[in-house]
Design a protein around this nucleic acid. Structure first.
Length: 410
RNA sequence: CGGGCUGUGGUGUAACGGCAGCACGAGACGUUUGGGACGUUUUAGUCCCGGUUCGAAUCCGGGCAGCCCGACCA
């Protein structure tokens, strides 16, 4: 991608009403645009990050047998009534202009519509277990959207649902999901803490959250300084300075961002929608379910909160919009164009700053802001030595690499 | 949903109740190119409605919007 052709431009200063780091940097870099409070456009650079995250999620969820599907955002009233969730205030009613009474709510959760569908496809123990997921926009009328991508009224979520014969099988799968989640967050460059959390009306036991430590987080967890056992403060009886119930080390209270959660639902939904299967003896039983979420857009915001410096973002390699940020400082020299083409041919994702009117300093500042992992500079100085300068984001040292060897270094 | 703060070109800021100005950006032309370079030139603004006043960006009332704190967040 040539920066001279990019749809967006960077901002030198962040809008004054943005306080959170993720909002400031993502808006300045041209990753997102705020259309309303808690409602963002993912601009071309930002969408590439979302796609990277989605790819990681897909790979890992597919590995544990998840099948991807895509459910509607407009969810008709009848689907919410079985669980009494039509009137839940978090929903946005969607009113057709011709209808007198609205009959839809924009989907803020998809257990209801999925469970009613699943009854058409699951009828025998031979049809179990199953797991389906989607990556979709959720709409929640948050009374207070905040902190950039961390709490939006419209956001991207991966929601996975599993169907089982028994609680035993549910918890077998629950553990698979847990491990897949750790791989997802690890590949996304985040350290997360597996945290015990309170169950709700629709769960059969405690639930678990994946928490990334951050001072802007809305959650507070009590986490063991040694074994990382953690409980969410909303249900924990622990307090600062207590001994860890698992290993005896000191417990500390920390602020954190919930980037994922997993819920053992049991049969609450299958009872509401009469989702049953026949076991080997022909007995009708309710299907046992689990649901598992990752806020994809929140994940993006969290990564920025964790990986940044004063100048901009430091994208972890697997989620960076581009791997290489190539800067040419002497635009009259055609050599850089060729380097760009060669790098692309070698398979590297390159953002090429070929702009002619920007000064060197501005190009460096933009490279720092956008935050691709590898910066390559081509200038008169480097070309005299048939080389390019290479620098990793977040490191000060630079090195010269012969042009012939450049593609191999990436 | 309660509380606080704030609304001036695209962004950041200034203007006692008295001509809305500056910088950056963006557009044009030219000169530049190793940490946000320079010259000439163009462009673009007081959130909305009402009130007070000779006169309102400024004061008052109401709305709307944004941010922050809290409540809420199966």
């Amino acid at each position: 991608m040539k920066l001279s052709k990019l749809f967006t431009k960077t901002l030198r200063e962040a809008p004054k009403d943005e306080e959170s780091i993720n909002a400031k940097l993502l808006i300045r870099g041209g990753f997102i645009f705020k259309n309303s409070a808690g409602i963002y456009t993912f601009l071309p650079l930002g969408w590439r990050v979302i796609e990277k995250l989605a790819r990681i999620v897909r790979e890992e969820i597919n590995t544990i047998g998840g099948e991807e599907l895509f459910m509607p955002a407009l969810v008709e009233k009848k689907y919410w009534e079985a669980t009494g969730r039509w009137d839940v205030e978090i929903g946005f009613e969607a009113k057709g202009k011709k209808e007198k009474n609205s009959a839809f709510v924009l989907g803020w959760s998809h257990e209801d519509i999925l469970t009613s569908m699943a009854a058409k496809f699951i009828s025998s123990y031979k049809d179990l277990p199953r797991a389906v997921y989607q990556i979709q926009t959720k709409f929640r009328n948050e009374s207070r959207a905040k902190s950039g991508l961390l709490r939006g009224r419209e956001f991207l979520m991966k929601d996975l649902y599993s169907f089982h014969e028994s609680e035993n099988d549910l918890f077998r799968y629950y553990d698979l999901v847990k491990r897949a989640y750790f791989r997802i967050f690890n590949r996304s460059g985040l350290e997360v803490i597996y945290t015990l959390a309170a169950g709700g009306v629709f769960t059969i036991s405690d639930t678990h959250e994946f928490q990334a430590l951050s001072s802007v987080g809305e959650d507070k967890i009590f986490v063991c300084s040694k074994c990382h056992y953690a409980e969410n403060s909303e249900m924990s009886k622990l307090k600062d300075g207590d001994k860890c119930p698992k290993c005896g080390a000191e417990i500390q209270g920390k602020k954190s961002i919930e980037v994922g959660n997993i819920f053992p639902l049991g049969t609450k939904y299958s009872e509401a929608f009469d989702l049953k299967y026949s076991d080997k003896d022909g007995n009708q039983k309710h299907v046992v379910m689990g649901s598992y979420g990752i806020g994809i857009s929140r994940l993006m915001g969290t990564i920025v909160e964790v990986h940044n410096d004063g100048m901009g973002i430091l994208w972890p390699e697997d989620v960076a919009p581009f791997k290489v940020h190539l800067i040419v400082l002497d635009h009259r020299n055609q050599e850089a164009d060729k380097i760009y083409e060669d790098l692309e041919k070698s398979g590297a994702e390159v953002l090429y700053d070929d702009r002619v009117e920007q000064s060197a300093g501005e190009k460096f500042a933009d490279a720092d802001l956008i935050g691709c992992p590898i910066r390559i500079v081509v200038s008169k100085k480097t070309l005299e030595k048939d080389s390019a300068e290479i620098k990793l984001r977040g490191q000060q040292k630079t090195g010269l690499v012969k042009l012939i060897n450049l593609a191999d270094k990436i």
